[in-house]
Amino acid sequence: MLWFVGMGLAGAGSIPADAKNVIEQAEMVYLEGFTSIVTESDERALEEMAGGKIIPARRWMVEDGKEILDNARTKKVVLVSYGDPYTATTHIELRTRAAELNIPTGSIHAASILASAVGECGLHHYKMGRTATVTRDPRAASTPYRIIYENLVSGSHTVLLLEYDQDGGFFLDPGDALGLLIEYEKEQRRGVITDELFAVIASRIGMKGQSIVAGRISSLKGYDFGAPPHAVIIPGGLHFTESEALSASAKCLDAPSDNSERMPSIPQQMVKKYVPMVRDAMKTIEALEDNPPEYGHVLENAGHYLRDAEEFMGKGEGELAVLSVGYADGLVDALRMARGIDRVQ
């Protein structure tokens, strides 16, 4: 049998009583330490529970899974991990493979950083959007950047997990994580990650020395957040009760601010940009002499499409708004090409 056991956020001291019983009765106990830091004192405490040596489970061992699954066929095996066992997709995949091999599995859940950090900051769980991971590789910044943007547009909060390299003893600093996103913003120029963006740095949640610091990125630059583990939360739309709770629970370098208020959707950005451009092109064509009579009908229809786009946008129907702008632009573009007018970008 294969048990998946979570240690929670405070290490071995926060292991549930049921989990202790499972560990004590286990024939083999693997300790996974690649998703977050596990201290030597936690290892010693687990060894005492298990009544023997704990087997370190490196990332490759859990991803490969062969040794763990082979032993679980005939022995009672436990895989212990920081937080909740199923926060890591690697563990879920291992459980799936065990089920396919008809190896019985069991689960003992514990506190996860995804839930605990949000609650400690006073934010509402039902407003959480997709989670993302920030790594030290600048090329990987596109995914968290896109997820932050999508969450902000919908008014949702984003939890950013930071890269941890067990073998190298490396934990990405929150300031460096925000710096990577700022650098990526310079390429995108969509106004997602700016100095005015309000962020929350949750450090050592559930441990001694817990710290929550919040403020605009401009205020967080150069701040010493202390030892890991850390998580970064980018709030979306803030209810007034969230702002009050955040002010009470965190060291706020700036007053909490709603990041979603200033974040237009892609349709809003497109309509704002292209409607004036199409209207200017229409005026240019209207000012020409000797336009055929049918040009007036085409321009009139283009004008209707632009008004439709603005009405759709007002109703929150962004896709229809973009389509309407596209139809108007296509009509005007055809007239422009017919008269040999260069397109103004």
Rank of each mutant, 00 (worst) to 15 (best):
R59Q: 08
Y149L: 10
W60N: 03
L79W: 05
I37Y: 14
R59G: 03
E27C: 03
T87A: 14
I68P: 00
P56R: 11
V118L: 15
I147Y: 02
G33Y: 14
Y86F: 15
L31I: 12
N71K: 14
A110R: 05
Y145S: 07
D42C: 10
I68Y: 03
V134T: 05
I113R: 01
A98D: 01
G83R: 04
A72E: 01
I103P: 00
R139H: 11
I113H: 01
P144N: 04
Y126K: 02
D84A: 11
T133W: 10
T74D: 09
S112R: 12
E120K: 14
A110N: 13
F34A: 00
L31N: 07
A115F: 06
V62L: 04
H125M: 14
S36C: 05
R97T: 01
E120I: 06
P85G: 06
H124E: 13
V118N: 13
I68K: 03
G119R: 08
T87Q: 11
D84I: 11
E32G: 05
V80T: 07
S107I: 12
P138C: 10
G129N: 06
P138Q: 06
L101A: 12
R97P: 00
K127Q: 13
H125V: 13
E67N: 00
E40C: 13
R95I: 05
M28I: 08
V80M: 09
M28E: 06
R130I: 05
E67I: 04
A132W: 02
I37V: 15
Y126N: 09
S116I: 00
G33L: 03
T96A: 12
S142G: 08
R95G: 05
E100F: 07
M61G: 00
S112M: 08
T143K: 15
R59E: 09
R130L: 13
G129M: 09
M49W: 14
H125D: 05
G106N: 13
I113N: 02
T89W: 02
N71M: 12
G122T: 06
A141R: 07
E67A: 11
R58G: 11
V78G: 07
C121S: 15
P56D: 03
R59N: 03
A99I: 10
M49H: 08
Y30C: 08
A98L: 04
I68G: 01
K66H: 07
P138D: 10
R139D: 12
E67M: 03
G51I: 04
M128A: 08
R44N: 11
A50M: 01
A99E: 12
V29I: 14
L123E: 09
A45N: 09
S36Y: 01
E120F: 08
H91M: 01
V80R: 03
G129Q: 02
T105Q: 11
A140F: 10
I68N: 01
A110I: 06
M49F: 12
N102K: 15
E27Y: 03
W60R: 11
A111Q: 10
G51H: 05
V134L: 10
T135F: 09
N71L: 14
G52Q: 06
G52W: 08
D64Q: 12
A88Y: 07
D42I: 09
E93S: 15
C121N: 12
H125S: 13
L69E: 02
L69I: 01
S81T: 15
S81W: 09
C121A: 15
A111Y: 06
A98T: 04
D70M: 04
L94F: 03
